[in-house]
């Protein structure tokens, strides 16, 4: 109950900010931060709970984005339809990849997901309808009331997507799915022997995770009013999703939120003050530092601090 009240409060506040006369740049930066939060949360459902590393975040994200573009160009579909369709396609991709590689050890799944990024990118580069390698300029429909600009409207949209992602991650964690996934993470053999349907659980997690990433990708073309394969399938999304979860802490749905919030805010500051390359470098360095020195992430550090101050 407390959770749903805070969700309602957050959404009302978001709407308030979107309608207030805040500087446009704020929405630009906030969109980036909320995307990172939603992607990390989605990644954590399979990576954090079950311990299967998915390097393919851009593949799922990109499938969502390109689904949205196709629907928009072909039927002029409205944004909510694009997002739902992006989620469905992301989920289907998750099911396919999972079926091929989730039977194997985690490392093979991880490499398989890298393969999916490049296969999707190659397909899109060779598909003329969506602009091929050079990309496609999109003419955005007029912005819906009550929002003044696209940045404000999409800020609200991505906030809703992020809230849905977090709520699903929270539900999965506390349900039988989450318990099964944790059993898989601790010892897959032991889980299998005690009757946990490991493959089915991993597939469910992969579909949910992929679907959410697809939903996050869907509003991106509208946001940029442009789509192009190289930046859509950029490995920067992989490191953002992975980094957010690992730095925040993978055992709880709150971890990716904290990690992604810290990481992407830092990235925005560095991009503005230093450069775009350095911001990715910082994420890489932080990722390695946390993985080695604080494997439980910020949440783990916080718990340790609580225990020692008692």
């Amino acid at each position: 109950m407390k959770y749903w009240i805070s969700v309602a409060v957050i959404l009302v506040l978001t709407l308030g900010v979107a309608l207030s006369p805040v500087n446009e740049y704020f929405f630009f930066a906030a969109y980036f931060v909320l995307t990172a939060i939603a992607l990390s949360t989605a990644w954590n459902i399979l990576g954090g709970y079950a311990g299967y590393v998915n390097f393919g975040t851009p593949a799922f994200f990109g499938v969502g984005a390109y689904t949205a573009v196709v629907l928009f160009k072909w039927l002029g579909a409205p944004l909510p339809v694009q997002i739902v369709a992006g989620a469905v396609m992301g989920g289907l991709l998750g099911f396919g990849v999972g079926l091929l590689t989730l039977r194997l050890r985690g490392i093979f799944f991880a490499i398989g997901t890298i393969a999916v990024i490049f296969i999707m990118e190659t397909l899109m580069i060779n598909w003329r309808y969506v602009g091929g390698a050079t990309g496609l300029q999109l003419v955005r429909p007029p912005v819906s009331v009550p929002f003044d600009t696209y940045a404000r409207m999409l800020f609200m949209v991505i906030a809703v997507v992020a809230v849905v992602a977090v709520s699903i991650a929270r539900y999965v964690q506390d349900s039988w799915i989450g318990r099964g996934l944790r059993a898989i993470r601790d010892s897959e053999e032991a889980a299998e022997c005690s009757g946990v349907p490991t493959l089915r659980l991993k597939l469910i997690a992969c579909v949910i995770s992929g679907g959410l990433m697809g939903a996050v990708g869907a509003p991106m073309p509208m946001y940029l009013s442009f789509i192009e394969p190289a930046s859509t399938f950029s490995l920067n999304y992989t490191i953002a999703a992975l980094g957010g979860s690992i730095i925040g802490g993978m055992s709880h749905w709150g971890g990716p939120i904290i990690g992604a919030l810290v990481l992407s805010t830092l990235q925005q500051i560095i991009t503005v003050t230093i450069s775009g390359e350095v911001n990715v470098l910082v994420v890489g360095v932080l990722l390695v530092l946390f993985v080695v020195l604080a494997p439980e992430g910020v949440l783990g550090l916080f718990k340790r601090w609580l225990r020692s101050s008692k």
């Binding site: 990576g47 590393v53 390097f55 985690g106 490392i107 490995l235 990715v280 890489g284 990722l287 993985v291």
Partner: peptide, 12 residues
């Protein structure tokens, strides 16, 4: 998970 994340971070 962590070993993979480490090498991925190193590559980056």
């Amino acid at each position: 998970v962590r070993g993979l994340a480490f090498f991925f971070g190193l590559a980056f």
